[in-house]
Design a protein around this nucleic acid. Structure first.
Lengths: 205, 205
DNA sequence: GTGTGTGAAACTGTTCACAGCT
DNA sequence: AGCTGTGAACAGTTTCACACAC
């Protein structure tokens, strides 16, 4: 069980490999070398080989990697060979964009419920769903086997919503608010905020 | 000029420090220690002191850091003491969410024009602006002194739009499409994609 | 006592370079 | 010849621990 000793950065690169393999597969190409894959992603060939070596030997010396096989292996490693259920909190402009983002379902992520605390939004349609009140959180998580929460709420509300999500048993949170959440050890949080990202880019301008 | 030798990871943490200082400043607190700041962000105090030491000595031994001063220093370091002009490409659901996201202007980022290639969207209002055709790109960049481009277009269009942006002289691109762009050395690209992020989270579930 | 700034040490991650297979 | 898998060398990052200042 290699799990624990795989560096975090390696895990973050695997989805890029997977994405690129899927684009390559669409062209009908069946075999790819670490050099070719690396060139498309901007990563060295050694890095790709080393990263993959944490999980097994997927290539053939002298040839390269079978595109379809490596794609399946990566999906298995990242546990992407199943559907994951997501609860979206926040039905503002961002929530609507997320609820209508087709890439989720294409990649086996299903938003199964949307919550908001704004009376005016509750009951309104969003994507294929209907906005529910925050009080429905626990039931929505339980009934739909939700594993992941997406926070599309204002920064001031994020921590308290996160606390509620964690109380229902959720262990993975994707947070769009520009605030560092304080969570127990066993909960994973990832952050997406364009302002934070832009603030690093201006340094280099 | 310390610039070149400052590690990338350090730059990525500075906006977190800044955000947290701004929240602390709102409470009226005037002095903060590296320990307290670190606790709020989930970073060690040594890391904060080391990071800041790349740029100067901002603290007072035995006391800590003056919140307002450190905030200003960070803004200066990240070049956030000026307004940056952004061109947004893509007026779909995501483009609308971005155009209406108040945090941009609050943090000195101004979206000055929005483009789309869809005839049905051109001329429509978006935020305080009007969607313009892609042919307006060069003029929009020149007339508004645009320094940053945001790509909110489908993956298949992203590379070609990026090429056009770069041709107008833009050197910073924030890309929402799940594809690694191929760009010249001098262009900085940052990526934001929820699916890619979720695909790393499932590994740990 | 409290807390910064910083070299040195420890640790983590990346690249090199080559044996071995096709 | 072309390419993988990998130990070893190298580079980058974080933590430690302490002199110094309040």
């Amino acid at each position: 069980m290699p799990r624990a000793q795989v560096p975090n950065v390696v895990i973050r690169r695997l989805p890029l490999y997977l994405q690129t393999l899927e684009r390559i597969a669409e062209t009908g190409q069946q075999v790819v070398s670490s050099t070719e894959l690396g060139n498309q992603i901007g990563v060295s060939s050694a890095q790709i080989r080393k990263d993959l070596s944490y999980f097994g030997e997927f290539g053939r010396q002298g040839l390269g990697y079978d595109v379809e096989n490596l794609r399946n292996q990566l999906k298995r490693i990242l546990q992407l060979d199943q559907v994951w259920h997501i609860l979206l909190v926040g039905a503002g402009a961002l929530g609507h964009a997320l609820a209508n983002y087709r890439a989720f379902e294409e990649q086996n992520f299903a938003i199964v419920a949307v919550l908001d605390n704004d009376e005016a939004k509750i009951g309104q349609p969003i994507g294929d769903l209907t906005v529910q009140p925050m009080t429905s959180m626990e039931r929505a998580v339980r009934d739909n086997h939700v594993e992941i929460g997406i926070l599309a709420v204002p920064a001031r509300a994020a921590q308290s919503v996160a606390d509620n999500l964690i109380a229902t048993g959720i262990r993975s949170i994707l947070c769009y608010a520009p605030i560092t959440l304080s969570v127990p050890e066993h909960v994973h949080v990832a952050y997406i905020d364009p302002v934070t990202t832009l603030q690093t880019m201006t340094y280099y301008l």
